[in-house]
Every structure is written in C-alpha cells, then in structure tokens.
C-alpha cells in the first residue's frame, strides 16, 4: 500500500508543478483530438446518415466497412498511414511523418467510422413513421439527411462524443505516426506510456488524471448539449 500512496503523492506533486512541457502536451492533445474529431464528424456523420437512409448494396457495403472500421486497432491505422507517409512511400514527398498533421490524419481515420457508425445507428432508430414521412417528402437526398440528423440531434452528439473519446484516449496510432517527440508530437497518452516505461509512475498518473479531466470536461459539455436538445414529448 505504501507504494500506491507514494505514487499518488508524486502525482499530486507533479500536478502542482504545472510546467511548460505539460502545458504544451495538453495543448497538443487538445488541438490534435479536436481537429481529428471535427474532420471525423464532418465526414463520418453525413456518411452515417447516407448509409442509414436507404437500402442499396453500396450502402450495405459501406455499413460493413464502417463496422469493421469501428473495431480497427488504432496501431494498425497508424501503421497503414506510416507506410503511406514513409520517405520512400507513395506520399513520402509530403514529409508529414512524425508531425502533428500526420497525427491528426491518423486519428481522423479512426474517428470517421465511429462517427458514421453511431450516426447510422441513430438514424436507423428513427420511428418508422418518420422514415416513411421522409421518404414521402419530395426532398433531395442531402436535405433528407439534414432533416434526419436534426431529428436525431442527441444521437449526433453521441457520435461526436464517441469520436472524441476514441481519439483522445488512443495511443497506438499517434505513437506510430507521431513518434512521441518531446515538444513536437508528444500528447498525453504517449507521454503516459513514456513515463510508465521509465517507472516515473507519479508523473504517469498525474498525466492520466489530466487526461481524464480533459475527456470528462469535453464529454460533460456534450452531455449537457444532449440533454438540452432532448425532445420534451
């Protein structure tokens, strides 16, 4: 037990000495996660609505792809992107490897299927009367999608929350394409891995607490939005 008390004590000490490096890590974590979530949502939410608002072979194929993507190990997404961005790889001349841009790209790949899958589930969950009414309206496809998404607004917020939760807590992909370079590509999760491997448990736990507070704050905000938007009938 003494060991655990010692670790927690160390963690609280680290937190009180809120250094420049920690602030940088938190800042990069926020920027990368928020950007990846935003890109993932912008692509994934309409994709999910499209998948759910019709029954064609193409949509079914996409649904399968999305479901596979939702369960894809992040480290594999990172590896795939690493191979593309490697010096001699197809996109090597972009020189993006080990940059925050590459990290955002990797996490966007992870966020898209989550956002699409949760959105598709929400839209498919519309009452049958709503789906029939949508089909009966003479609206172009994108407008049907918009009406459906507004109707399942709390479900779309759940998609945003799930996507953010996925990317902010993810370590494999950012580690592979980012490289955990101090001051450049180090984020909270990769820093935790680093400190744990050095047996700096107090430091690692402190970073973990920050990560949880961060994720909790963002998801708390989304939950509040969800409740505010819930239909009162």
């Amino acid at each position: 037990m003494d060991f655990l008390f010692e670790v927690v004590g160390d963690a609280l000490n680290s937190l009180s000495g809120f250094g420049v490096e920690l602030r940088r890590v938190i800042g990069l974590t926020l920027v990368v996660s928020v950007l990846a979530t935003a890109f993932g949502v912008v692509i994934g939410v309409p994709l999910g609505a499209w998948i759910a608002l019709g029954r064609t072979k193409a949509r079914t194929a996409w649904l399968v792809a999305v479901n596979i993507g939702m369960g894809m190990p992040p480290v594999l997404a990172g590896l795939a992107l690493l191979l593309l961005l490697w010096d001699t790889g197809p996109l090597g001349q972009l020189e993006l490897l080990f940059s925050p841009t590459a990290m955002v790209a990797a996490q966007t790949l992870l966020a898209i299927p989550i956002a699409a899958g949760v959105t598709a589930g929400a839209v498919k969950g519309l009452p049958s009367a709503a789906s029939e009414q949508l089909a009966a309206l003479s609206l172009p496809g994108w407008q049907k999608g918009r009406v459906a998404l507004v109707e399942v607004w709390p479900g779309v917020l759940a998609a945003v929350a799930a996507a953010f939760g996925r990317v902010v807590s993810e370590v494999g992909a950012v580690l592979v394409v980012g490289g955990n370079i101090v001051g450049e590509t180090r984020v909270l999760t990769t820093a935790i891995v680093q400190e744990t491997r050095r047996a700096n448990f107090g430091e690692a736990l402190a970073l973990g607490i920050v990560l949880i507070l961060l994720a909790g704050a963002v998801n708390g905000f989304l939950t509040w939005m969800q409740l505010r938007n819930a239909r009162h009938d």
Partner: peptide, 11 residues
Amino acid sequence: TYLPQRPYLFR
C-alpha cells in the same frame, strides 16, 4: 404526392 398513414412532424 403522398400523405402517409401516420404523418410525422420533424423538429
């Protein structure tokens, strides 16, 4: 133009 059995009004 078609009126479904249970018209549904959206948000």
